[in-house]
Amino acid sequence: MTSPAATRKTGKVWLVGAGPGAADLITVRGARILSEAEVVLHDALVTEEMLALCPQAEKISVGKRSGRRSTAQAEINRRLIECAHKYARVVRLKGGDPMLFGRADEELRALEAEGIDVEIVPGVTAALAAAASSKQPLTRRGIARSVAFFTSSTAPGHPEHTTLPDCDTLVQYMGGKEAIDTARKLLAQGRPASHPVLVIENCSRADERILRLQLGELENGLAGCEGPVLVMIGEAMAPRD
């Protein structure tokens, strides 16, 4: 005789991009799937306004914040698998886009190894939202035709990257703590101290803050920035006359 546990069907997991922070910047598909979820495992950067889109769901915080006590990735993977065996519709809600600095690779590997069905719902990544908030295009004809998204954060046990991308516009995610090192590397490469820099803290939220600096000033660091920080560097960041 087959036991109930053996015949129970495994649920499906959606990795959903919440966007940069504002609740109305999630995609229509993402909002619909949230409204149908039975359980939502969400990042620390996901706002209460965003979670209000899924009042019917059990909510589990699995936030990871740099420099703070947070849920280890292995534990997040374990809880996702556990929820997929308990619920039919599981949402892993991530700030920005799941496929860009969202640790989607680790979660996909863990779920696929268990034979659990996974679907990805893209979100508005912070760089695009920051460009919109600041009204500062990442590309400009005749000035900037290449863009690189990068982060200096690495996985435990992995060496830190010593070089920076060679592009017209550089966008550094999680750039607050790394600002001084980034500026020094770029200055050492020969970029002028007057090179334009745009810093966006808490992108798209009510407490968003935009700072216009030069590369020489960035070398002094970003004191006072408490929220998530995006640093955009390049001639395309120069203010319009």
Rank of each mutant, 00 (worst) to 15 (best):
G157N: 02
G157R: 15
H158I: 10
H158Y: 11
H158M: 12
H158K: 14
P159R: 10
E160G: 14
E160K: 15
E160H: 12
E160L: 08
H161F: 03
H161E: 07
H161W: 07
T162L: 11
T162Q: 14
T162N: 09
T162I: 10
T162W: 04
T163Q: 15
T163W: 06
T163N: 14
T163E: 15
T163I: 12
L164A: 08
L164H: 11
L164E: 01
P165Q: 04
P165E: 05
P165H: 13
P165N: 04
P165D: 00
D166A: 14
D166I: 15
D166L: 12
D166N: 13
D166W: 00
C167G: 00
C167V: 02
C167Y: 00
C167P: 00
D168P: 10
D168V: 08
D168F: 10
D168A: 14
D168G: 07
D168T: 02
D168H: 12
D168W: 07
T169Y: 03
T169I: 03
L170S: 07
L170A: 06
L170M: 09
L170E: 02
L170H: 01
L170V: 03
L170D: 01
V171S: 01
V171F: 09
Q172W: 11
Q172R: 10
Q172D: 02
Q172Y: 14
Q172L: 15
Q172E: 12
Y173V: 04
Y173F: 14
Y173G: 05
Y173I: 06
M174W: 07
M174R: 04
M174C: 08
G175P: 02
G175L: 06
G175K: 01
G175C: 05
G175S: 06
G175Q: 02
G175I: 06
G176M: 00
K177G: 10
K177R: 15
K177I: 09
K177F: 00
E178T: 15
E178M: 08
E178H: 13
E178P: 01
E178G: 01
E178D: 15
E178F: 06
A179K: 02
A179S: 15
A179W: 09
I180T: 15
I180M: 12
I180L: 01
I180G: 04
I180N: 01
I180W: 03
I180H: 14
D181M: 05
D181P: 01
D181Q: 11
T182F: 10
T182I: 15
T182D: 05
T182N: 12
A183P: 05
R184T: 05
R184E: 11
K185T: 14
K185S: 13
K185G: 12
L186P: 08
L186E: 10
L186Q: 09
L187M: 12
L187H: 03
L187D: 07
L187T: 03
L187A: 08
A188G: 06
A188Q: 14
Q189L: 15
Q189A: 13
Q189P: 00
Q189V: 00
Q189F: 02
G190D: 12
G190I: 10
G190T: 07
G190S: 09
G190K: 02
G190C: 10
R191S: 00
P192F: 06
P192L: 00
P192C: 07
P192S: 07
P192D: 02
P192N: 08
P192H: 04
P192I: 02
P192E: 08
